[in-house]
Simulated scan of single mutants.
Amino acid sequence: MVKLNVIYTRTGDDGTTGLVRGPRRQKFDLRVEAYGTVDEANATIGQARLGTGSMPKIDMMLGRIQNDLFDVGSDLATPGEDDPAAHKSLRVTAVQTLWIETQIDHFNEALTPLKSFVLPGGTPLASALHVARTVTRRAERIVVELASLEPDVNPEAIRYLNRLSDLLFVLGRVANNNGEKDVLWVPGNYGDLKKGD
């Protein structure tokens, strides 16, 4: 159990932060950026949950995902191999990613088939889920970049974020009355603009 009694330590006043193990790193370090962006994605999901009052199952699912994202953050904040004699580090597992895939398959079944790309919008919940989706995609890109520089990054963390962004897209459509209220992209649509406007 984590116990946090002191909120500020002053140890980061020099622009560095501590990981679970290893030397302190600059706060702009790519690993710090990676788990920080995962934290940002988590916060956007928390914001989206404010609109799930009429969808308790989705709210519970998003709550589980928020917990999983803390696992992802812990994974990313723990570089290097475990000492066999020490406590095993928390890592994202294939079971967590498979659960996300199961949710995608379940919710996608009832959706109206897509005829175009979906624009972020529709209902407030759908819009919030699209924000969460794009932040999750950004987190995934940063983790992929980190993995190219530090090969000890758990590949399952990348897979989890990839699937999560897909799930958030599907849930955005669910929040738009199962796709009925989706806002679709119309390529080259200039609306009612007249020449010279």
Rank of each mutant, 00 (worst) to 15 (best):
residue 91 R to W: 09
residue 23 P to L: 11
residue 37 T to S: 01
residue 142 I to Y: 00
residue 125 L to G: 00
residue 154 N to C: 08
residue 22 G to P: 11
residue 98 L to M: 14
residue 135 V to A: 06
residue 161 L to E: 02
residue 100 I to L: 15
residue 158 I to T: 10
residue 34 A to H: 00
residue 61 M to L: 15
residue 88 K to E: 15
residue 69 L to N: 11
residue 7 I to W: 08
residue 87 H to G: 09
residue 74 S to C: 15
residue 156 E to C: 14
residue 178 N to Y: 10
residue 3 K to D: 14
residue 67 N to L: 13
residue 132 A to I: 02
residue 174 V to Q: 10
residue 95 V to M: 13
residue 179 G to P: 04
residue 112 T to D: 05
residue 10 R to C: 09
residue 113 P to V: 05
residue 138 R to F: 05
residue 150 E to W: 08
residue 90 L to Y: 09
residue 2 V to R: 15
residue 37 T to I: 01
residue 187 P to S: 02
residue 196 G to Q: 11
residue 165 S to C: 09
residue 174 V to W: 08
residue 196 G to K: 11
residue 17 T to S: 13
residue 193 L to A: 12
residue 111 L to G: 01
residue 191 G to P: 06
residue 79 P to K: 14
residue 131 V to F: 03
residue 97 T to E: 07
residue 101 E to T: 12
residue 159 R to L: 13
residue 107 F to C: 14
residue 99 W to L: 09
residue 129 L to E: 07
residue 7 I to G: 05
residue 168 L to W: 03
residue 32 V to K: 01
residue 124 P to N: 08
residue 50 L to P: 04
residue 56 P to L: 05
residue 172 G to W: 00
residue 149 L to Q: 15
residue 137 R to G: 04
residue 54 S to G: 09
residue 189 N to T: 03
residue 56 P to V: 05
residue 114 L to C: 02
residue 36 G to Y: 00
residue 149 L to S: 13
residue 10 R to E: 06
residue 28 F to S: 11
residue 191 G to C: 07
residue 141 R to D: 00
residue 103 Q to V: 11
residue 126 A to R: 00
residue 22 G to C: 12
residue 135 V to K: 06
residue 127 S to E: 02
residue 51 G to A: 10
residue 44 T to Q: 15
residue 24 R to D: 07
residue 104 I to H: 05
residue 93 T to N: 12
residue 174 V to K: 10
residue 18 G to H: 13
residue 165 S to T: 02
residue 30 L to R: 07
residue 30 L to P: 01
residue 40 E to L: 10
residue 11 T to G: 10
residue 130 H to V: 04
residue 156 E to A: 14
residue 165 S to E: 00
residue 40 E to C: 09
residue 141 R to W: 00
residue 123 T to V: 11
residue 131 V to P: 01
residue 155 P to A: 10
residue 135 V to M: 09
residue 161 L to D: 03
residue 113 P to E: 02
residue 195 K to C: 06
residue 8 Y to K: 13
residue 6 V to W: 07
residue 136 T to Q: 04
residue 13 D to G: 04
residue 146 L to D: 03
residue 141 R to L: 02
residue 121 G to I: 03
residue 72 V to W: 02
residue 133 R to A: 01
residue 105 D to R: 13
residue 46 G to R: 07
residue 175 A to M: 03
residue 21 R to H: 11
residue 39 D to Y: 08
residue 149 L to D: 04
residue 187 P to D: 03
residue 107 F to W: 15
residue 155 P to T: 06
residue 94 A to D: 13
residue 155 P to W: 10
residue 101 E to A: 08
residue 58 I to C: 03
residue 157 A to V: 10
residue 122 G to Q: 07
residue 19 L to I: 12
residue 4 L to N: 08
residue 55 M to T: 04
residue 157 A to S: 15
residue 170 V to A: 00
residue 17 T to H: 04
residue 152 D to R: 12
residue 94 A to N: 14
residue 31 R to N: 04
